[in-house]
Amino acid sequence: MTGSGLCLTLTVILYLAGAALLAANLLLRRPLLLTIGRIAGIGGALCHFAAIGLRCMELHRAPFTSPAESLSLLAWSLAIAFLITEAFWKLSVAGPFALGLSFLLVLLGAALGGHHAPGANVADHHEELLASNVISLHITAIIASIAAFVLAFCCAAFYLIEHRILKSKNGLKWLDRLPSLRLIESTAFTLVSIGFPLLTLGILAGLTPAVRGGLPEGWLTDPKTLLAFMVWLIYGVYLIARLVLNWTPVRTAGILLAGLPLCLLLFLIPSNAHRFG
């Protein structure tokens, strides 16, 4: 097993442990579970960072040429986004979802395979693209924005669950386990406020080689490109609804819920213009 493989195995274990401990804390409210869950999450993110770094050193290029590598990067971004959210806003309820999803994404990547062995042939054209900082920026910014949107989806889901409990008065015993509606809503807004400029930056960075003619014909009608614009549009609508139209949090949470399938589709849909391997 290579160094990156070993780190990735540790990552999977720590993400799973973190998700399980934070879920147990949500049910049992034991401070010790929360502390150990946080430590597992931080440990998982550090191992994951080491795995990605070692992979870079093994390949001598950015590690996102295969679905496995991209999924791994998304999983790491999601874990980091959660840990930052938890550090600033104490939103540990999102932990089981964020770390659980990170665990599944790494596992899915491993199942899909497609890791390029060090030294494997990558087309010259793609080598050139991957060596470009603009393309690296394009990919990392878009992946980071998707991580922020996924976490914003989680916040929106919690908002609607808590809203439903408060409205229906069923399951009131769960209330003291959940953060306030205001905190959840403002965290979701902050995440989108960070994710949206990142997505914009990622799209602009992707347009640069296209404008220079470095991309194959038909990139504009490529499903990934079209979906990226749709995702940009939907989160743009969210920001306008939140900041200008003064929509109620329940309605804006609906937009965030609708955004997630598009984000996942954007990430997973096959595309000729976005193949680097």
Binding site: L166, L175, S180, L181, R182, L183
Partner: peptide, 9 residues
């Protein structure tokens, strides 16, 4: 007060 805390923080 508990419900208010859940709504407003």
């Amino acid at each position: 007060a508990d419900v208010a805390r859940n709504i407003f923080g």
